[in-house]
Design a protein around this nucleic acid. Structure first.
Length: 610
DNA sequence: GCCGTTTTCGGCCCGACTGTTTTCAGTCG
């Protein structure tokens, strides 16, 4: 695996001009770390600036290299004249004199040590410097583990036996650390902890917070808040959670546990009078809170926001305003309540000040599911669904849908002649017609569509002959092979597939798999433009491993007036309830009911299909 | 080094917890 030090210092055969945003962010953080070591006081705000720039790069929706090509580096908030110039030098010549100068003399191994929880800039620097020659011999974390086991760390000034043990424990956790958890998995852990906490009668309010409450696609730590009159009692109960592996920390207001699978659960406790402030504070995001505090200070320099409430300084007197709910907290600052999904410092504070927070789409707005795979044997080379069309119809009625689409993968191209493909599709048409005739007028489902999820071949063609396409009501297209084509070629590939008149939906458009496969490279400006002008739609796929389009592209799509559709990609009726995850993504992308296609009733949807 | 609904100068978010200390530094969220 690539280490951080490698990505900052020697990128092997690659040149710096190919650095991606993650690597640039790591580099900017390393520069901040360097300033932290030299004259931290003097460079206090420079450090903050570099860290902010790193955050901004990490969250940027385009590659910085591309922005540089277009002369738009300084459009990224947090990147000003100076950093932009250094980055420009980096992109054009392969290095930045300034960054190199600032980082001169820093042992590169320290950056790898900083992955270990509890080890920050200063500790890492101190350790590598004390044991210079040993660190040169091997991988930084392994060396540290070896030194700690030998008892060398505790001998150092400022360290002790406890911190040495801590280092060993943390290294063990880094090694066992899995990637970030998928939202449904984190939800399940939270539910179990909440169930345990409710056994304690002093727990008055309880909620999952952090990225879990903001419905981010992946969750790091599971955060939970409790409102109570007896914080000590609640914390004691929490650290007795039956399957805990160890107690990470335990204080008067917070405690953290490690559960099996190396999942960290943090608990925050507050009295019920201030519970609203606690909710607000620990829902985050960090960037939202920072921006909110800065905004509060700009209103009135004597305002200070924290998990306890809003501190107002009047002369020599300090008053703490308490908020039992979030709405009154935001209202106090002269703004509307902001849905958690929007709290990423992406313009939501400005919108709330103007009382223009979007009326976000709700799960109850969805009228149909536009990607479902039945067990109709379509002789596909991909995965066939497991549930029958009739069972899917029953489930759709249960969910109150008016319409659904059967979207099995196309019959395999290599194993069939064109005529065989046409025959299979005709048979499916007849089967779907039969299902339509069998629908009960006493239930919600009015229509099932005969659709198909068709591979986009590398050259942009579709592996289904026109006569086969004629049997369909409409088609989805998606990419399942050749993921690594050049951006231009990939864009042409997708656009030529979308050009087919039967094709309405571009399904799971980035083809990413969370924790598994990177997104394909596409020229989104061109894709959005084409979709808007030709009545083509982009899917938000509800599969928790996909969640594709991702939230930031939903936001761009919506801004560009491109319509989105929701599909669960269900291969079993149980997957049909995943729809909520697609809606979460859309909400995080600022989408309203009007931005989606399958929030329309059946007759409106029919018109849009024409 | 960045940024602007009082500003192109003068500001820059807030607090908890731990370990090694004896009043605090470092780290984290």
């Amino acid at each position: 695996m690539r280490t951080i030090a490698e990505s900052i210092y020697n990128r092997g055969m690659r040149v710096n001009t190919l650095m991606n945003n993650t690597e640039i962010a790591e580099l900017l953080r390393a520069v901040a770390a360097a300033y932290e070591l030299h004259n931290a006081d003097k460079n206090k705000f420079k450090i903050i600036a570099y860290e902010r720039a790193a955050d901004a790069v990490e969250h940027a929706s385009s590659e910085l290299k591309d922005l540089w090509d277009e002369g738009k580096l300084e459009d990224v908030p947090g990147i000003g004249k100076s950093i932009a110039a250094h980055l420009a030098e980096l992109f054009s010549t392969g290095k930045s004199k300034h960054f190199e100068q600032v980082m001169q003399g820093l042992p590169k191994q320290m950056f790898d040590l900083m992955i270990v929880p509890g080890i920050g800039v200063k500790t890492a620097y101190k350790l590598v410097n004390k044991f210079k020659s040993t660190f040169k011999k091997g991988e930084a974390i392994k060396v540290l583990e070896y030194l700690a086991k030998k008892g060398e760390i505790s001998k150092l000034e400022g360290f002790g036996e406890e911190s040495e043990l801590d280092i060993l424990r943390s290294i063990k956790e880094v090694k066992g650390r899995t990637v970030r958890h998928l939202l449904p998995y984190a939800n399940e852990i939270a539910d179990r902890v909440i169930e345990w906490m409710k056994k304690n009668k002093n727990v008055i309010n309880i909620d999952p917070l952090g990225s879990l409450r903001r419905k981010a696609s992946t969750v790091g730590d599971v955060d939970i808040s409790v409102g109570t009159a007896k914080p000590k009692d609640v914390i004691d109960h929490f650290v007795n959670f039956p399957t805990k592996q160890r107690i990470l920390e335990k204080g008067n207001h917070t405690a953290s546990l490690i559960l099996p699978g190396n999942i960290q659960v943090d608990l925050m406790v507050q009295n019920t009078e201030s519970y609203g402030s606690l909710l607000q504070h620990f829902t985050g995001s960090k960037h939202h809170n920072i921006a909110l505090r800065e905004y509060a200070r700009s209103l009135n320099p004597s305002l200070s926001l924290s998990e306890y409430g809003i501190k107002v300084i009047k002369g020599k007197r300090q008053e703490m305003k308490e908020f039992s709910d979030e709405k009154s907290f935001y209202n106090f600052l002269g703004m509307e309540w902001i849905p958690p999904e929007l709290r990423e410092d992406g313009g939501e504070i400005e919108a709330a000040m103007l009382h223009k927070v979007p009326n976000l789409i709700e799960i109850s707005d969805v009228r149909g599911d536009l990607q479902i795979h039945s067990d109709f044997d379509i002789e596909t080379s991909h995965d066939l669904g497991l549930s029958s069309m009739n069972d899917i119809v029953d489930k759709a009625n249960q969910l109150g849908y008016q319409y659904i689409a059967f979207t099995e993968h196309n019959p395999s191209h290599s194993r069939h002649s064109e005529n065989q493909i046409i025959d299979i599709l005709k048979r499916k048409r007849e089967t779907v017609d039969k299902v339509n005739r069998s629908l009960s007028s006493r239930k919600s489902l009015r229509k099932v569509y005969n659709s198909l999820e068709i591979d986009i071949l590398p050259d942009g063609n579709l592996p289904v002959p026109d006569k086969g396409l004629e049997t369909l009501d409409f088609a989805l297209v998606s990419i399942h092979t050749s993921f690594r084509l050049d951006k231009k070629i990939m864009t042409t590939r997708v656009l030529s597939a979308l050009a087919n008149p039967k094709v309405k939906i571009f399904a799971h458009p980035t083809a990413r798999k969370i924790n598994g496969r990177e997104s394909i490279e596409l020229d989104w400006v061109k894709i959005f433009d084409y979709c808007k002008n030709n009545n083509k739609w982009l899917e938000v796929n509800a599969d928790p491993m996909r969640l594709d389009l991702p939230d930031f592209l939903v936001r761009e799509a919506v801004k560009n007036k491109v319509k989105i559709t929701f599909g669960t990609d269900a291969h079993h009726i149980d997957h049909m309830t995943n729809m909520r995850y697609a809606v979460f993504v859309a909400r995080r992308g600022w989408a309203e009911k009007k931005d989606s296609i399958n929030t329309r009733g059946l007759s409106d949807f029919e018109k849009l299909l024409k």
